[in-house]
Design a protein around this nucleic acid. Structure first.
Lengths: 233, 233
DNA sequence: CGCGGCTTTGATGTTCATCAAGTAAAGTGG
DNA sequence: CCACTTTACTTGATGAACATCAAAGCCGCG
């Protein structure tokens, strides 16, 4: 019974990630994590971790939306990717260094769970099925990021923009209508082009009836055409 | 004694990767791998695996140099990275899909070791320390690839070229003088620019006394300046 | 030897960054 | 809540970076 009570206090039942992530952990291991974990909320625009921070805790995104980006003095920000829960941005580079390689910033109000790294490491080394699962997830998420990056690199401006808009529509919001969680400048940093040209391309997409746009509000009007641009544009 | 004989037949003693990779395997597990492993040689320009191939074997590069690239009909080749032994290109995406996401092609005569994937998977699930080591390596190599890709994305043409030349000098050949293992076209595919402009930039580097170049032979003459260009160019 | 791919150079045009300047929106302190 | 400041957005004009096209020499290979 006491276990049951602890589990309930833990509130992990509602976590989307629980089933996937902890499938291989024993009940008592789950409780260890539950009891040790710390949940933190972040507002839009708040840094969750910063490049160079010492890495002490394992964390995963429970709710919200974040950008993974490289902040360098003397040059523009570069956005590596935008990730939502289950994309598991958190595990990128976690095992490769003592320090974060990237900065992670909330784009929408977000909730993050922290677990002491040593606990995760000890599970991963003791419980091979858990470690294997972790490895699979790590591999999948980095694969997607890398393929996305190569796609964006290949395309020219309008193709990049179409690609990013469709990522929001298809992958992130799963809807043709949504509020952009990023500024024009951030779209530019993601695409690797200038802000002005993102604005011009958005205006042209509107003129060509591919999208409807007012401020942050976007509606995809011609997905087929936009998809074509995102592949060959 | 028989074990000893098998180990010797295996010829893994000379493998650079052995110590790193199999640190956590038991003697008998090592022997399993030794007995099951197949060594294959590839000539320059030969495909080691192709995008879309069904993934059946775990493989690692024992000797040589390879490019990881995306081959698409209707668009130029894109080189993701160039990897040597210990860079462990082999494990990228191995756990994320049944199929190879990229094509791997030898740039120099190369030797690859294949091990049946189910054996590696069974080790990874039974032997957590092995799995953890594998995960760490996977994470490190993908991190490096991703950071490199973002660097190349940020730079303009001469910066990209300087970056790539320095990768050969510092990371791959560890020498100021070396024979280019790639064509000008491949440098262009790696940088994401046109072949002609790579040639023009090479000519300009030569004119500015940054490099000496005759055919495939390269010598870095002014590494400081080239490094500066590779950071801010 | 001749064919195809690699290399090189020049000329031309397109894509895109940059600069400038102004409007709108959003945050800040009184 | 309003004045103020900053940040985001937008449009136009200009020039730089770069792709593309064309043409010719080179080299390795069947």
């Amino acid at each position: 019974m006491e276990k049951e009570v602890l589990t309930l206090n833990c509130q992990c039942e509602n976590c989307q990630l629980r089933a996937l992530f902890f499938a291989h952990l024993q009940q008592d291991e789950m409780l260890d994590i539950c009891n040790i974990r710390k949940e933190k909320s972040f507002e839009s625009n708040e840094d969750i971790v910063r490049r160079g921070d010492k890495f002490r805790e394992f964390f995963y995104l429970k709710e919200g939306l974040v950008k993974l980006h490289i902040v360098k003095s003397g040059s523009e920000d570069q956005i590596i990717t935008i990730a939502k829960p289950l994309d598991f941005i958190s595990i990128l580079s976690i095992f490769s260094s003592d320090h974060y390689q990237y900065t992670v910033t909330a784009l929408l109000p977000s909730v993050v769970c922290n677990v002491d790294m040593s606990l995760i490491k000890s599970f991963a080394t003791k419980n091979a099925a858990f470690g294997f699962d972790l490895m699979t997830r790590l591999s999948k998420s980095t694969d997607i990021v890398l393929l996305e990056t190569m796609d964006l690199k290949r395309l020219q401006l309008k193709g990049k923009l179409a690609y990013i808009l469709l990522k929001f529509a298809n992958h992130i919001f799963k809807s043709e209508r949504f509020d952009l969680p990023v500024t024009r400048k951030e779209i530019a940093e993601y695409a690797g082009v200038s802000t002005e040209n993102i604005i011009r391309a958005l205006a042209e997409f509107r003129k060509d009836q591919l999208i409807r746009i007012s401020g942050k509000e976007i509606e995809i009007l011609n997905k087929n055409r936009l998809t074509q641009i995102s592949k060959f544009g």
